[in-house]
Simulated assay, not measured.
Amino acid sequence: MLVLGIFIFWFSVRDVSFSELIGDIKRLQWGWLLVAFLSMFFSLFFEAAVVKALLHKETMTLRWRDALRIPFIEQLFNGITPFSSGGQPAQLFAMLQSGADAGRATSVLLMKFVVYQSMIVVNFIFALTTGFHYVADKMQVLSLLFVLGFVVHLCVIVALLMVMYWYNFTKKTVKFFFKPFKKFSKTDRYEKLEVKIDEKIDNFYEESLRLKKDGRLLLKISCLTLVQLFFYYVIPYFILLGLGISGVNFWMIVTMHILIVMVISLFPIPGGSGGAEYSFSTIFSSFITNSSKLILAMILWRIITYYFGMFLGMVALVVKPQKMKKG
């Protein structure tokens, strides 16, 4: 992924004046860039706070250093796997290293996933209502991707809610749509897969009942997740300030970043590489008219939001955690 990133950066700057790019780097306001890095760190910090709160509910006390280790490792494995599919197993691995029970750790990740997906959809609805008209007028191709991204995430939430509130109906529906696969697979393999899917639906339903019973905890982790996402979404604003670009609308920048993140989730390449850089450059070209500053902003954004987390994950992966205390 590092090699691919370097190639994309080189491809992006090939038509930009090197001397102009160096001049823009020299004129960077490093204080604002430090704020951007801190925003990314605080985003991960509040994600760790969600994990710590959920584990505390399970009468397990996790040290802050080891709690931070979990989202750091998640960032690494999200960044090197298609559709960020490696983040969940990596978090489970990190929690097991800290001494968490496998069943309880899985329940924590399920609850965390439900709340995170819900807050993603809430933020995206906000972005659609406030900034979609701007994108639809100027970038029709990307606007279609935004809508597709919203539909995908909405379908995930609807499926989760169906399991939570229409358990029997959901199981019957899944089995109905799953039956055609029986023709293309061996009977024993099909039966094993059917049992595995039933177990996952049952586990999720049981954990959803526990989550619904504790409204205070649900509200707490929802607020923490919103704060986590806010710190992540404001990063481009501080990058623009670091480039000396002022007078931009704060909420418009945040809205555009929400839309970009939604598009990135659709690209199967790890980290959305290629699509992420293209989306950022296309959307923020209206705010940054200078081509070298636009490319520099894109590179800084990828370093902060993607590579920074991956390097933190590399460090966290080799740090040995302490076993958590159980009450």
Rank of each mutant, 00 (worst) to 15 (best):
S279G: 02
L312R: 03
Y190H: 05
L144M: 08
M139L: 14
A276E: 00
S292V: 04
S43T: 12
H153L: 02
E20S: 15
V35R: 04
M119G: 10
V50K: 02
L160Y: 04
I269C: 00
L211P: 00
F41Q: 08
L296A: 13
F150E: 03
R69S: 14
A48M: 05
W64K: 09
I295N: 06
V263I: 05
E277T: 02
T129H: 12
Q75K: 15
S118L: 11
L224F: 10
T282E: 01
G215R: 08
T173M: 07
T289P: 06
F41I: 08
L76I: 08
R216M: 14
S292P: 05
E191A: 08
F42D: 08
P236V: 06
W64H: 09
F93N: 05
F77A: 09
G272S: 03
G274W: 01
G272W: 00
I221Y: 02
L145I: 07
L259Q: 12
V51S: 01
V318N: 11
Q322I: 13
V158P: 00
K213T: 07
Y233R: 12
L110N: 07
I221W: 03
G275Q: 01
V318Y: 13
Y116V: 05
L300S: 06
M256A: 09
S43E: 14
L226R: 11
C155E: 09
L209S: 06
V35G: 04
Y165F: 07
